[in-house]
Design a protein around this nucleic acid. Structure first.
Lengths: 247, 247
DNA sequence: ATTATGTTTGCAATATTTTGCGGTTTTTAT
DNA sequence: ATAAAAACCGCAAAATATTGCAAACATAAT
């Protein structure tokens, strides 16, 4: 049997069954596992399959990261980079949704050993792609506009967990009115997220500071960390610095 | 025998079997392997065949799918189109994961009024994009390989719902062994999905029919509909037709 | 018929590719 | 932590390719 035949068979098998074990292929094709591994390496090299420990996965199952432009992406990356310093090995985390959180998920180091809870399918997929730790997606009704799960199921599930740190994006933040939002459902979720977290960090681009929306999530002093794209010493953060640790 | 004759024979052979071995041709044509190799080189030079180590392949032999493409996407679209006819306004549905289900989600008409449950974040996002109905994502641990939620939380949540129809992709299906899969966790999820569904449809490209994997989900007669990319009257479906409604 | 010329073929020597194996390291699971 | 599974590395054997060369062959012109 020609090498190309064998590799074609492997590709078919992978795409048909989503995953293959080197040991199975070795038996089916009657060659050594080394040969299979070499094949898988070649196929992975040329992007035909995704090699994993013990075998390979179909690429079509992997989450396709689309790169549509994001507003103020660089600022958000800065924020994400800072927020990651709050994360340590062994922690249990709860992540919200939004583009900033997505950037953060993309920046999580492979080596990090954490348990991630999140209400955002996109964040969950991104995390799962990168780390091999537990990623638990909290299910519920999917909010069309924000792509996060909402509703009483989410509240229920949140009430049953306890995490070390909650990372939350926000729409508006001010010293006087704290964290505010415009969507009643989202407010309920955020309140529940705060309730189950030991510590909370708010991630927000500087533009959103000092804006206020109709519904209130919490006071500013319920927040432990504020992560923005500005230097902590920046003039526009001085008033926040008095009530919350600014990073 | 003339060189031209010989090469014509080789081309016929290649097109017939999609591959040839130099050693075989050498015997069949009663010339040395060197001559065969020279022939193959010439034919490859003029683009008639694809030369590889040990022989040659038909030019039409390429890997079973293009880069960055989903394997057998057209077949999957066909299946999705048929499966949609099973869906009616007002129904409550439970969808699995996989590329076929993703195609289906993309084809759901805007005006369809249904409630969708799903264990696949990608399917959920796609559904939420298209319909204004309720899309409920069942949360749990995210399985890295398949991008569906798994684990006891999922089972628990599934035990609390009751849907009209469950649409399930599958890895393997045969009359004798029913629906089988290679992943223990996935099998548990599928079983739970079947339990909470009035009716069940299996979506599978014809290639997967009559293949068997190590773990069993259910017997074939636990299935109500089988949706493939073939005509229901197709010869390879006759045995299935006797136990399940084939679409 | 013979010679000259160019092509084709087989052979031998030499490279290259592929494959399996033993030993070691890394990863995973317990 | 520890043991098992899998991956990696280098090596050697086998299979296949390549190259140069000479013999065989065909063809056409003398």
């Amino acid at each position: 049997m020609l090498k190309e035949e064998r590799q074609a068979f492997i590709i078919r098998e992978v795409n048909l069954h989503n995953k293959v074990l080197s040991s199975d292929l070795s038996v089916q094709l009657n060659v050594s596992e080394d040969t299979i591994r070499r094949d898988l390496n070649e196929l992975a090299e040329s992007g035909k399959v995704l090699k994993v420990y013990g075998g390979a996965l179909s690429k079509s199952f992997q989450y396709p990261f689309q790169d549509n432009e994001v507003y103020a992406r660089e600022s958000k990356k800065t924020i994400a980079g800072k927020a990651i310093t709050l994360i340590q090995d062994g922690m249990t985390l709860l992540l919200g949704g939004g583009t900033t959180m997505l950037e953060l998920a993309r920046m999580i180091p492979e080596k990090m050993q954490c348990t991630f809870f999140t209400i955002s399918p996109l964040v969950a997929l991104e995390l799962a792609e990168r780390s091999n730790d537990d990623v638990i997606l909290i299910g519920g009704k999917l909010a069309r506009s924000t792509n996060i799960t909402i509703g009483s199921q989410v509240i229920n599930q949140l009430s049953e967990i306890r995490v070390d740190l909650c990372l939350l994006g926000t729409n508006s933040l001010s010293v006087e009115d704290g964290v505010t939002d415009s969507d009643w459902e989202v407010v309920q979720i955020k309140k529940a997220m705060l309730r189950c977290s030991q510590k909370t960090a708010i991630l927000s681009i500087a533009e959103k500071l000092n804006s206020v929306q109709k519904m209130k999530v919490c006071n500013i002093n319920a927040i432990d960390f504020l992560v923005t794209d500005l230097e902590p010493s920046h003039i526009s953060l001085t008033r926040f610095s008095q009530v919350v640790k600014v990073i």
